[in-house]
């Protein structure tokens, strides 16, 4: 009897399930991204216009069509001469906080610097795998961790305090090229997970990150008033002062804003999924110098 039922069910399946074309509706088509190339692997063809300030300057002066502005990848905002903006205030605030807390609780700086109190250049190596903690740490996660461990406070990721300190640490690496290794171990695993998330279709609008930031997608096209640009080289200027938002925005807050617009559930800053995505995004900025503070 059971066997007969089994055959009947299988037969039913054969009828009900038609031969579907092999499309995975859960993901956006993938692109070849070589993590070894870093920012030079940019698939948008625009890297030549923003690979350094002189290229940006040249392209900005040559191009006359505003619809080409996206090709500068926003880097034209970094070369403005009189560039005083609230991002600088945030850096000052962050510096004040770090020095104040180092004064009250010696060891805060050493914790931020993973043992060294010299904080210059550390931001260029984040996110990294912390063997002692056994997890991939972003810079903001390090600030949160050290605030808890040394100060008995909680500078939560996504909070203004955390953002200001993170931006201050990043500003100490201003001009240094991002160098993270994603070729082995937990970092490679995080990279691969982040890559999967980049192509995962989410939300009511059924978009993936890739729907706006890969060739053939909306990238380079108008999305009403905006033109999505390449994801390469983007991480180098975060956290950034966002003039439309009026605050220093950390990368995870930017992710949240994107996901809200995709009508997907935004996750909290510091979520493991965001960490993986940050590893993937940062590897796409490998070799590109950090700009902090910046304005967008």
């Amino acid at each position: 009897m059971k066997a007969r039922l089994f055959i009947a069910v299988t037969a039913l399946h054969a009828i009900v399930l038609p031969a579907v074309a092999e499309t995975n509706f859960n993901t956006h088509p993938r692109f070849e991204i070589n993590p070894e190339l870093g920012v030079a692997g940019d698939f948008s063809g625009t890297y030549k216009h923003w690979r350094d300030p002189s290229a940006v300057e040249q392209f900005a002066s040559v191009q006359t069509d505003s619809s080409n502005e996206w090709m500068m990848n926003g880097k034209n905002m970094d070369i403005v001469e009189d560039d005083f903006h609230p991002g600088h205030l945030a850096v000052d605030e962050g510096e004040k906080l770090v020095n104040l807390w180092e004064h009250r609780e010696p060891g805060f700086k050493a914790c931020l610097g993973s043992g060294s109190t010299d904080l210059e250049g550390i931001a260029a190596r984040y996110p990294l795998y912390d063997e002692k903690l056994g997890r991939v740490m972003t810079l903001a996660a390090r600030v949160e961790h050290c605030s808890k461990k040394v100060l008995w406070k909680n500078f939560k990721q996504g909070s203004p305090m955390n953002a200001n300190i993170t931006l201050y640490l990043k500003s100490l690496s201003n001009g240094q090229p991002i160098q993270i290794a994603v070729d082995s171990g937990p970092m490679k695993e995080a990279y691969l997970r982040g890559e999967t998330l980049f192509y995962k279709r989410v939300g009511q609008l059924n978009f993936a990150c890739a729907s706006c930031h890969t060739p053939g997608s909306i990238m380079g096209n108008r999305l009403r008033g905006e033109v999505p640009s390449t994801p390469f080289g983007d991480v180098s200027h975060y956290p950034t002062y966002r003039s439309p938002v009026g605050e220093v925005e950390v990368l995870h807050k930017r992710f949240m804003r994107c996901l809200k617009q995709m009508r997907a559930k935004p996750l909290k800053p510091g979520d493991p999924a965001y960490v993986d995505l940050e590893v993937f995004y940062t590897s796409m900025s490998n070799g590109y110098p950090i700009t902090a503070p910046s304005i967008r």
């Binding site: 859960n26 998330l197 995962k200 279709r201 989410v202 939300g203 009511q204 059924n206 996901l259 009508r263 997907a264 559930k265 996750l267 979520d271 493991p272 999924a273 965001y274 995505l277």
Partner: peptide
């Protein structure tokens, strides 16, 4: 939005 896929590893929408 919880009725649609999301990026989370822990929430049901993931």
């Amino acid at each position: 939005p919880m009725k649609f896929p999301c990026l989370s590893y822990s929430l049901a929408c993931g």
